[in-house]
């Protein structure tokens, strides 16, 4: 049971830290807000064009917001060599990974839940019926991003030019997540029947499963020797 406990303590620590500093969430939200505004200035958003482009815009905004959060995730551990302590503590490294991933997942999801209503307001969307489908898309896609992102956050945090390296390494890897998320969001926003885009849910599920397991195993090599 110490495995579950270690996960809980990791999540607890990240949440308390975030509650005190509000650093990650505030920077994520404001960055995303600016992304939304820049997009709406860059494309003249009449109703029809918005529908076609919107799914893409939403996920670009979410992905970059997520990268902001992921970049900060292990940066906090670097201060006072806390990463070193995590490494030499007897807690299983997999538990540390899962705890970190859960915290990142929660932050990203929270940001998305706050941002999505803004999209609805800014672009006059009508999503009452598809809201549950969209929620599942958000959950699955965010899990995929968090699974790979947490591993890569740990990978890039101790190297030079980490701000650049995280997106450079992460974005090519999560292309399947982005494609699937955009396609299913587009389907839901256009009110297409679920069967037309249900295949993307399978892709998201498979991706999440594979990369949570792979990252779980590989994380030990990042944090441990």
């Amino acid at each position: 049971m110490s495995f579950i406990k270690a996960i809980r303590w990791m999540v607890w620590k990240d949440l308390i830290t975030e509650m005190r500093s509000r650093e990650t969430l505030v920077s994520m939200l404001f960055f995303a807000l600016i992304v939304i505004l820049v997009f709406s200035f860059s494309f003249s958003m009449d109703h029809q064009a918005a529908r076609e482009l919107l799914a893409g815009i939403i996920w670009v905004a979410f992905a970059f917001t997520g990268i902001i959060g992921l970049g900060k995730s292990f940066l906090a551990e670097l201060h006072n060599d806390c990463l070193e302590y995590l490494q030499m503590s007897p807690a299983p490294k997999g538990a540390i990974y899962l705890g970190k991933m859960t915290a990142n997942f929660l932050f990203m999801l929270l940001a998305e839940v706050v941002l999505f209503p803004l999209f609805i307001i800014f672009f006059n969307l009508d999503v009452v019926e598809e809201i549950w489908i969209l929620l599942v898309v958000f959950l699955l896609a965010t899990e995929g991003l968090a699974a790979v992102g947490t591993l890569f956050s740990a990978l890039t945090v101790q190297i030079r030019a980490r701000e650049v390296m995280l997106p450079v390494l992460l974005l090519p890897m999560v292309i399947p997540v982005m494609i699937a998320a955009v396609e299913s969001t587009r389907g839901a926003l256009n009110g297409e029947p679920f069967a037309l885009y249900s295949q993307w849910f399978h892709l998201l599920g498979v991706f999440d499963l594979i990369f949570t397991v792979v990252s779980y195993w590989l994380f030990e090599l990042i944090l441990d020797t």
Binding site: Q158, P176, I179, V214, L221, I222
Partner: peptide
């Protein structure tokens, strides 16, 4: 150097596993 090699190896493994999935998803798309 040890860490460099270790991290690079992890990256290579993730990428190699990801490549078929990427190909598959782009094909569907």
């Amino acid at each position: 150097p040890d860490r460099e090699s270790r991290y690079a190896a992890v990256l290579a493994i993730v990428g190699f596993i990801d490549l078929p999935i990427i190909h598959f998803s782009v094909e569907w798309w």
